[in-house]
Amino acid sequence: MTVIRSTDARRTETPNAVMTTLASPTQGGTANSLWRVAMKEGGQGPLHVFDVEQIWAVLSGRATIELGDETFAVADGDTVVLPAGMARRITAEGAFEAVVTAPGGARVFKVGDPEEARFTPGWIA
């Protein structure tokens, strides 16, 4: 068993959101990552692609998810499974918070970036 103390949570702030890493391979004891995403009203991530499936559980607020050619509205209590390899963008319709899980080491890139630009975000590592 591994206990990851709240004092060991990592906080990463981007222009779009604050990610708080709750569990990850670099924190020990797991091959998966779990993090909380908090976005302010109007916050919007870039159009990007992950190489792994992600599961998002909406804790509060509402958001719009662009996935491929479709757009989905999500709200408190919804859970979304985002498949690997599809372009996506999340836009907060108000203050929005979710808990997300994916395999540790997941790699991401912005649509249009070259393959060598792929990286593992700090909140997933």
Rank of each mutant, 00 (worst) to 15 (best):
Ala75Arg: 15
Thr21Trp: 00
Gly28Val: 06
Leu22Cys: 01
Ile124Asp: 04
Ala102Arg: 01
Phe72Met: 13
Val80Asn: 00
Gly28Ala: 06
Glu66Pro: 00
Ala84His: 05
Thr79Ile: 15
Val58Cys: 04
Glu116Trp: 10
Ala73Gln: 12
Met86His: 11
Phe50Trp: 14
Gly112His: 10
Thr79Glu: 04
Leu34Tyr: 06
Glu13Thr: 14
Ala102Gln: 10
Asp78Cys: 09
Asp78Arg: 04
Pro25Gly: 13
Ala9Phe: 14
Ile4Phe: 07
Phe119Ala: 09
Trp56Ala: 04
Val18Cys: 06
Ser33Pro: 12
Glu13Pro: 00
Arg88Phe: 07
Glu13Ser: 08
Val52Met: 08
Pro15Phe: 11
Gly122Met: 03
Val74Arg: 08
Val100Glu: 10
Val18Ala: 08
Pro121Asn: 08
Lys110Val: 09
Gln54Tyr: 03
Ser6Met: 09
Phe109Ala: 06
Thr7Arg: 12
Asp8Trp: 01
Ala75Pro: 00
Asp69Pro: 02
Gln44Arg: 15
Gly104Leu: 07
Arg10Ile: 07
Ala106Lys: 03
Thr20Phe: 02
Gly85Leu: 00
Gly94Met: 08
Ser60His: 15
Asp8Pro: 02
Leu67Asn: 04
Asp8Glu: 14
Ala84Lys: 11
Gln44Thr: 15
Gly85Asn: 11
Leu82Ile: 14
Glu13Met: 07
Gly94Gln: 13
Asp69Ala: 14
Leu47Trp: 08
Phe72His: 12
Val52Ile: 06
Thr26Asn: 14
Val108His: 04
Arg88Gln: 15
Thr14Gly: 09
Glu41Ile: 00
Ser33Asn: 06
Pro121Phe: 01
Asp51Trp: 03
Val18Thr: 15
